[in-house]
């Protein structure tokens, strides 16, 4: 687990955080020590307790047990102070769909104490920065998914918070919108904001987070940098398809020798799958196949998916959980690792 930070430079310091809904231990003893100015990723499937943890840290939900200090303030005793320093972008749009983007930002600005004129100027500045100027007067409910996310984040930083919670900021977004959100997060962090984000995608945590906690059934089951986590699950899977099915056995043999791992032969007579521990070996292995005159139609190196992380860490696949707060069953969204 992470080293101890005894100095006052922690954005979040939690000990034994617990929340129980009836029989369901949604959050079951979470410890956190997140230094200021970093991005911390909370990785886990639906129902793992990510949202519940974030809602507690953002003063929306009272913890049943545990002690938490946010930027040096006691979460329960000094909630108002905490609220001055943090901001939350929830999993579902935390803006008013009935109002326009402009009106939403003015509303938040006014509530934070800006004059009418200042609120309007700040709203315009943010809309421009987030590429929403042309949609400023449209009702937010007519925005696309990516635009909703951006206005949502904009609403969270009308006064830039010292600590920003982003609950699954890119779930359901297309790749382009996702990249835009990532860019925004990177700029925010570069200006000194501490970010805690939850995600179901290892890739996202990998791209953004300095440290990652893997959470399952209310408990942190692994914590570390993305490099450390990946080392524990391997670098991903190599998928290869040969042109001639008769060459598959030979190709598999070559790959076993080069990669020093077990090879799987799926029912597809052309396919070979190998769990890779070191990506650098892959280049050599593919070269060896070419030298042996084995023609490939296709090859790809996939990042390990959340499923694989889970399988490795817990020895069991990701299950469908009941969403503890809405009582609705939520299907885990499977996303294949992308071609590396």
């Amino acid at each position: 687990m992470g080293e101890k930070h005894a100095n006052g430079e922690l954005a979040i310091e939690a000990k034994g955080l617990k929340k129980i809904f009836g029989e369901n231990k949604a959050v079951d003893g979470v410890d956190l020590a997140i230094p200021k100015g970093t991005v911390y990723g909370f990785l886990g499937p639906n129902g793992a307790g990510k949202t519940t943890t974030v809602r507690m840290l953002a003063t929306l939900l009272r913890p049943d047990e545990g002690s938490v200090k946010i930027l040096g303030y006691d979460l329960m005793g000094e909630a108002t102070e905490v609220r001055k320093k943090v901001s939350l972008t929830g999993q579902f749009a935390s803006v008013d769909g009935d109002l326009s983007g402009m009106e939403n930002l003015i509303l938040i600005g006014r509530l934070l104490g800006f004059s009418r004129k200042e609120a309007k100027e700040r709203a315009m500045e943010l809309l421009t920065a987030f590429g929403l100027k042309d949609a400023a007067k449209q009702q937010v409910k007519n925005y696309s998914g990516g635009m909703k996310r951006r206005i949502d984040i904009a609403a969270s930083i009308v006064v830039s918070p010292e600590l920003l919670f982003l609950d699954e900021p890119t779930t359901g977004l297309d790749p382009r919108s996702r990249n835009q959100v990532w860019d925004i997060i990177r700029v925010l962090v570069s200006t000194g904001t501490t970010v805690l984000l939850t995600t179901q995608y290892l890739e996202e945590a990998d791209q953004l987070a300095d440290r990652i906690a893997v959470i399952d059934q209310g408990k942190i089951i692994a914590e570390g940098t993305s490099g450390e986590l990946k080392a524990s699950v391997g670098a991903g899977k190599l998928h290869v398809r040969v042109l001639d099915p008769d060459q598959r056995a030979e190709a598999a043999k070559l790959l076993t020798e080069e990669l020093h791992v077990d090879i799987q032969l799926p029912s597809d007579p052309l396919a070979i799958v190998a769990q890779v521990s070191d990506t650098e070996l892959v280049t050599n292995a593919l070269g060896k196949l070419a030298n042996a005159n084995i023609k490939l139609t296709d090859f790809s190196l996939g990042q390990p998916s959340l499923d694989e992380v889970f399988l490795t860490l817990t020895g069991k696949p990701v299950e469908d959980h009941i969403d503890e707060e809405n009582g609705e069953e939520v299907q885990h969204i499977h996303r294949k690792g992308e071609v590396g």
Binding site: K84, L112, G113, F114, S115, E118, R122, E125, L126, T128, A129, F130, G131, L132, K133, D134, A135, Q138, N142, Y143, S144, G146, M147, R150, I157, V159, S160, S177, Q180, D183, I184, R186, V187, L188, S190, T191, G192
Partner: peptide
Amino acid sequence: NHNLDTENKLEVDEAMISALSSRERPVK
């Protein structure tokens, strides 16, 4: 208005960085 955001290319530039780093908090 599903096509609105195709015209709104997001660029990380000075304007965005300055918009995002505004930390002045008005009086409550």
